[in-house]
Design a protein around this nucleic acid. Structure first.
Length: 261
DNA sequence: ATGGCTCGTGAAACGAGA
């Protein structure tokens, strides 16, 4: 099973790029963030023509998430339980025996301390959602743009100041708290050290200087982690004309073991 | 060097992004 997450920074100007990527990579599921359009404006027909059903939560101008699935699915949540903020930042589906949460965690650099508190509140609610799913013995993946660089290795030297919301101690603590539930960081489980960036700023020739960040992640519940085979950012997408500032993170899983009884 | 790009909005700057 092949899963991917990709912050596309607006789906409409990126539609051809995403369709080409789907045709080439043929993932089972692609989780998109920052679609930046209302649900009705999402190019559902184009993705359906490519063989993917769409679960979409959009809004005007900002945010928005969509999950594309090659296999039949049901939507289990169109917002993150416990989050009062109406921003379109979470959609969750069930397919192939997995619950797949697609999230766009608030950046937290705008809106002062109130904006930062929104980020931490979302992370708290995500922790509670993961805990609920673990208690229900559910196999799940939480994938998306977490807007957190978990460790200094995940931030190119000088790319961010120490006060940035992506590296603030409370942001990193929120990430560790998720991991301490027993979740596996797919990328780091297979590649424990070194840069594995998923984002390069459009500005200051960040891509050319490889001044990137690792902020897009997939967390796996324990039984899913046992099936982990590969995890890698697709850096080639950052070379394309008019790219997103993020690249896809691609994870492959082996088939689930036969059920015991 | 707090700017540098790239979006959406809506028709000019501006906010958000990270």
């Amino acid at each position: 099973m092949k899963l991917a997450t990709w912050n596309v920074n607006s789906v409409r100007p990126r539609l051809e790029l995403v369709l080409e990527w789907l045709a080439r990579e043929q993932p089972d599921v692609l989780m998109l963030q920052e679609i930046k359009c209302e649900t009705e404006q999402f190019p559902t027909q184009a993705f359906e023509a490519a063989g993917y059903g769409c679960a979409v939560v959009g809004q005007k101008t900002y945010n928005g998430v969509a999950t594309l699935s090659h296999t039949p699915f049901e939507i289990t949540n169109a917002s993150l339980p416990g989050v009062a903020d109406p921003a379109a930042r979470y959609i969750e589906i069930r397919t192939q025996g997995l619950l797949l949460g697609n999230l766009y965690l608030p950046n937290g650099n705008s809106g002062g301390e109130e904006g930062y508190a929104t980020k931490l509140a979302f992370a708290d609610a995500l922790h509670d959602r993961a805990q609920t799913l673990l208690q229900a013995n559910t196999d799940f993946v939480l994938a998306g743009d977490y807007n957190i660089c978990p460790t200094p290795e995940d931030c190119a030297p000088g790319a961010l100041g120490p006060e940035d919301a992506l590296v603030r101690p409370q942001s990193r603590a929120a990430w560790r708290r998720l991991r301490w539930l027993g979740l596996t960081d797919a990328l780091r489980a297979l590649h424990p050290h070194g840069a594995a960036y998923t984002f390069w700023d459009y500005q200051a020739r960040a891509w050319e200087r490889d001044s990137g960040l690792r902020i897009d992640h997939m967390l796996l519940s324990p039984r899913v982690a046992e099936r982990l085979r590969t995890a890698a950012p697709d850096r080639e997408e950052r070379e394309k004309p008019r790219p997103s500032d993020h690249v896809p993170l691609v994870v492959t899983l082996s088939e689930p073991p036969p059920r015991s009884h």
